[in-house]
Simulated scan of single mutants.
Amino acid sequence: MTPAARVQTSIELLDAIAEAARHQGAPADRILADWFRANRFAGSKDRRAIRELVYAAIRACGPLPESGRAAMLRLAETDPAIRPLFDGSQYGPAPIQPGEVVAEGGVAPAWVVERLVSAGIDDVEAKVLLDRAPLDLRVNTLKAERASLVLPVDAEPTQAPNGLRIAAGTQVEPWPAYREGLVEIQDTGSQLACLAVGAQPGETIVDLCAGGGGKTLALVAAMDNLGVLIACDTERARLSKLGPRAERAGATNVDTRLLDPGREMEALGEFEGRADAVLVDAPCSGTGTWRRNPEARWRLTPDMLDRLIETQALILDNAVRLLRPGGRLIYVVCSLLDGEGPDQFDALLARHPQLSSQPLALPAGRERAKGIRLTPHHDSTDGFFIARAGLAC
């Protein structure tokens, strides 16, 4: 493909991504993967170039762009190599016309920026949310130790006790160390959230929003496969990924539970009042993960945020029911918005006076109200709010 053809293809893909964002359709990475699968004529260099163009254009736009062409024109204003490629060639984009619509730049839609500012995220912090994320690994202590693990690439220790950082874009899945379960891909911030649980061998722990099980496996390793870990989720497809991952990691004390939304306690009744710890890694806006999913900025709406905050509160109330006297609840969101973080945690404590906030001592992050906040700029992790509460004996 010519450079101009790559730009035109990227414009068409951006149209599809923007349309999907408007209607909560497929994410950008899936749209790209489907296009690459259906268009085998695009070689590896073409695919790499197109992917980089698409994501650079997404990051260059704050609000949802009117079109893929408008998004690419925004990128052309910051990358002088792109503008000449609007050359009208056979497979390239049409020449730029005077007065064409150019997408708006910025970090995010204005209403989201306002909420970030009110949460203490200044312009410097906000801009880093659109950088490319590093690639972090967690050494699985059921099978290996960080100090003695040998990998095929250079790796630097992170703030997490078992964390390693390697070059972004490294293909980890083919490594023997990955296939044999010695390492898992997991952001350092996510690893620190697991550290906040303080999981101990022999405990009963509930991971109430387990998803694909990344945090579940970290907790199992901390428990040394002793005790019981109940991994729960309301989506069968996500939870089904945990079984093969647990087998690869050598995790043997995981019990999975598929929950019916609105009737979650029906599947967890036997654990009511019995859990030593409950981890609530709640569904959220994902503002802390924009480096990985920059088009998520285009999907979030005020109504959606309100629904997420309501869902978080319901999940937290269920978590309280599962705690034994003296047990602990750990609340985690990959969001930098106060409504999902400090305000949500304060509301939990107000609804349940039998809970009290517990201090956290993590190797990264800064205090935010009664919890700890991690940010890409300050901590070189995804953005997280992490807080812990204990139930009175």
Rank of each mutant, 00 (worst) to 15 (best):
C194T: 15
G227P: 11
A231V: 00
L208F: 07
G163S: 01
T311M: 09
R248C: 10
D15E: 06
Q171L: 14
A282K: 03
W298G: 02
A56S: 11
L229D: 07
I330Y: 03
A21V: 08
Q90R: 15
S356P: 00
R248W: 04
P353I: 12
L305E: 01
G339A: 09
L219H: 05
P65S: 09
I372F: 01
N225I: 05
W175H: 09
V220W: 02
S10M: 14
E367K: 15
L362Q: 12
C194L: 10
L391D: 05
S380A: 14
I315L: 15
A199C: 04
Q24P: 04
G25L: 12
A20R: 06
L219T: 08
A108H: 03
V197P: 04
P283Y: 04
L374G: 06
P174A: 07
G181W: 14
A71F: 07
G365N: 11
P161H: 10
E156V: 15
P283T: 04
D306K: 12
V54D: 02
R6S: 07
A76H: 02
P80F: 07
A282V: 02
F384R: 11
A350R: 15
A49Q: 08
A70V: 05
R59L: 01
A71L: 08
D233P: 01
V7D: 03
A108Y: 07
A94G: 07
T188Q: 15
R248N: 12
T375E: 03
G262R: 09
A20P: 00
N318S: 14
A38R: 11
L360E: 05
L258S: 04
V54E: 03
G62Y: 02
L192W: 02
Q24V: 13
L13Y: 06
P134G: 13
A38F: 02
V332K: 10
L268N: 06
D207W: 00
P261L: 06
V228E: 15
A81E: 10
L32P: 06
T204R: 13
D255V: 12
G25D: 10
D379M: 10
E203P: 06
L329H: 02
L336M: 12
G106H: 05
A119G: 13
G163D: 05
L259F: 07
E340Q: 12
M223K: 06
W111I: 01
G213E: 02
D87C: 08
N162K: 01
K143A: 13
L323D: 12
S380W: 04
G62H: 04
F345S: 09
R328L: 04
M1S: 15
G383A: 14
G390A: 15
V153C: 09
G341S: 06
W175P: 08
P65I: 08
R47Y: 03
A319E: 08
E173V: 12
T188S: 14
I31E: 04
C61V: 09
V113K: 11
G269E: 14
L137S: 05
L300S: 00
A167L: 13
A389P: 13
G262D: 08
D343R: 13
G273R: 14
Q97T: 14
Q191H: 10
E180P: 00
A155S: 08
L149K: 05
R274G: 09
I31G: 08
M265P: 00
S89N: 06
E235S: 05
P98R: 05
I315D: 01
A222H: 05
S380Q: 15
G105M: 05
E125L: 04
S10V: 07
A361K: 11
I121M: 14
T141E: 13
M1L: 14
E295Q: 15
A126V: 13
Q90L: 14
A16K: 11
